[in-house]
Design a protein around this nucleic acid. Structure first.
Lengths: 207, 207
DNA sequence: TGGGCTATCCCCCGAAACAGTGATTCTGCC
DNA sequence: GGCAGAATCACTGTTTCGGGGGATAGCCCA
């Protein structure tokens, strides 16, 4: 028996999902909340297996609430729930420990499949959401100039916090050479200084 | 009918999965390969809906192969497949466009559920894998000192590539003050210079 | 009311980064 | 054989950073 709790500020959604789930034999409806505070209040004296959680709510939003819930009750699985479909929010929910994400207009089958999957510890994104997430990951990758092996190596060492002379000593080069590579990196990646260089490098996973 | 292709350098695994799937009515076995080259060769003149892909193979590994496949044939869904269960590899596969990840010792039910899910565009990780991924995400977060709002603001501007005088002008402060905050950031986060500061900040999502 | 913290401002100085311009070697490739 | 590019080394400036030392003012809270 999977005990399901829902938190959403729209009564319509609560009702809708309740009616979708009420005839499921292995799903038990343990409660509902319309904001983060009342959700946290419920779990002081009660528990559940899976929490369906709206991502956008007044006050503390789903992303934050998810983090708090997973901090206090790591065993409770969180399934994100939203009307819209944005990669950024999905990614944030996942980073805060959610086990999946579906749209509020999902079919009954999808909803039940998702609840079962996350209950078993699996991670599940329904079709549309999964595609949006992949699109999002793709779109955040830029077309970058090719770095030579030497440049990559030096980029890595710069990121570690080594100075030019230190790098020079470490890989047996003149510090002039290291400086040349560093200048090439700035030029190739079209950034103005070390700070923006490292930011770009980490974001684009060059190191 | 879901057309499934498998690439794995272990004949035993190919055979095992083949026998698990051969009586499935809606799954068609279109082919197999034992390395990345022969897999890419197959798809020149053929196609499939879902590719089960080993993560560790001689020559080009699964992570790379996945990237190439999704580049050439974005419509083909890739389902990662491995004997071991390491967050880092799973994450890399996902970044390269995979739609899911299961262990080779998954049950028949899990395997079929995963194939159906990714075929529908969903993203699916079976139980053990999902938990490993979440553990991995958790473990990569360090306990960090709390930054004040002002420090966060300045940290963001440093990452954008602004110098102290530029930041000072931008937020109407003395460049001495900006410098003080900058020094506090270095001290609080225990890093030696801008490069390591920004690396840490991006990795830990402080900006 | 006094300590702790944030936020602001100031100065000095050496080290590092950044900009500009130049050069030589070696390798792969057409 | 020649050409492009990588990789190496060199010099000269100016700007910025980073370490050290301070100071003042406001705020919260015990």
């Amino acid at each position: 028996m999977i005990r399901v709790f829902i938190v959403d500020d729209h009564p319509v959604v609560i009702e809708g999902i309740h009616s979708l789930l009420q005839h499921e034999k292995d799903i038990a409806w343990v409660g509902q909340a319309m904001n983060a505070q009342s959700c946290l209040g419920f779990f002081v004296n009660n528990t559940a297996d899976v929490v369906l959680m709206d991502i956008s709510m007044p006050g503390m939003d789903g992303v934050e609430l998810c983090a708090v819930m997973k901090e206090r009750y790591p065993g409770i699985m969180v399934l994100g729930l939203s009307t819209f479909n944005q990669g950024l929010y999905i990614k944030k929910m996942m980073e805060n420990g959610a086990s999946g994400y579906i749209l509020k207009n999902s079919s009954r089958e999808e909803l039940i499949e998702a609840i079962h999957a996350v209950y078993c510890g699996a991670i599940f994104f329904s079709g549309e959401v999964g595609q949006a997430l992949q699109e999002y990951q793709k779109s955040s990758k830029k077309i970058l100039p090719v770095l030579t092996p030497r440049e990559k190596e030096i980029l890595g060492l710069i990121a570690e916090g080594y100075t030019n002379p230190q790098i020079a000593e470490k890989i047996f080069l003149s510090s002039f050479t290291v400086d040349s590579h560093r200048k090439n990196l700035l030029a190739k990646l079209n950034v103005k200084n070390t700070a923006s260089l490292i930011k770009l490098a980490v974001e684009q996973k060059l190191i």
